[in-house]
């Protein structure tokens, strides 16, 4: 079943076409990887889907609805969750509070919160503990997120995105710059999520990681989708080898 459909998406910055007539589909319950050299337009596609930047033309259809032009918070609430390439934790808040923010939007209601009707429920507390245990970071619960190491930040961002209600999880380079041990850990988590039926859209430079993980790979170069298919298919595609794997 198709969950997200990108149709003829275009975006240019000044004279540069960052995304050029891009079209692809994402199947429900699968891991789709977006690969390509630096500047291929992968992150731009992510930002277009999230509504951080607006497309010049084209459609992004999510469960029969065109989401182009909606604000990032509305798009998030439709069922998108993502992590960024750079850390986007709330540095002055504790790890725990970073996670509590992800559950729902009840916390944006002024009177309900002021009058104390929005206490952290047992379910939420248990979920936070469960997720922190998953990444072995329960003991950092009360630490400010800004004090964590790079790898720890990536893990917290990942579980924050998982807690944030969604039907598509978008991960922008989740293992870039982390230690091999941590990469192993993250890939285990992602595979477990896939087993549970998550739909994941992934940008990653690490080819081994990507090809082992993905059901479908989309290769971009200079804003254009140059190939798409199963990892096996991509590994043997000459065009891809020239553009990307060649060097």
């Amino acid at each position: 079943m198709i969950n997200l459909e990108i149709k003829k998406l275009n975006k240019h910055f000044g004279g540069v076409k960052a995304v050029d007539d891009c079209s692809f589909e994402i199947e429900k319950g699968s891991i789709t990887a977006l690969i390509g050299p630096n500047g291929a337009g992968k992150s731009t596609v992510f930002n277009l889907i999230s509504g951080i930047i607006e497309a010049d033309s084209g459609n992004i259809v999510f469960s029969d609805r065109d989401i182009v032009g909606l604000s990032p918070d509305k798009i998030s609430n439709l069922g998108f969750s993502r992590i960024f390439q750079a850390s986007s934790l709330f540095d002055n808040l504790t790890v725990e509070n970073n996670l509590f923010l992800a559950f729902d939007n009840e916390d944006t209601k002024f009177w309900k919160n002021l009058l104390g009707f929005n206490k952290a429920t047992k379910i939420k507390k248990e979920k936070v503990k469960e997720m922190l245990d998953l990444v072995d970071m329960e003991k950092f619960r009360k630490n400010p997120a800004g004090d964590l190491s790079f790898g720890q930040k990536r893990l917290i961002e990942l579980i924050r995105a998982i807690i944030n209600p969604h039907s598509i999880l978008m991960l922008d380079e989740p293992v870039a710059g982390v230690s091999p041990r941590l990469r192993e850990k993250i890939s285990k988590i992602l595979l477990k999520l896939k087993e549970e039926g998550e739909t994941i859209l992934l940008i990653e430079h690490d080819m081994d990681f990507t090809l082992n993980m993905a059901d479908k790979v989309i290769v971009m170069e200079k804003g254009i989708v140059i190939a798409e298919g199963s990892p096996e298919h991509i590994k043997n595609n000459r065009k891809v080898l020239e553009a990307y794997l060649g060097e």
Partner: peptide, 19 residues
């Protein structure tokens, strides 16, 4: 807490669905 998240990183707060 939401107010503080906006101070620290507004874009991230939006991505979590906060208006």
């Amino acid at each position: 807490r939401v107010l503080e998240s906006i101070r620290d990183n507004e874009l991230a707060a939006k991505i979590l669905g906060k208006n």
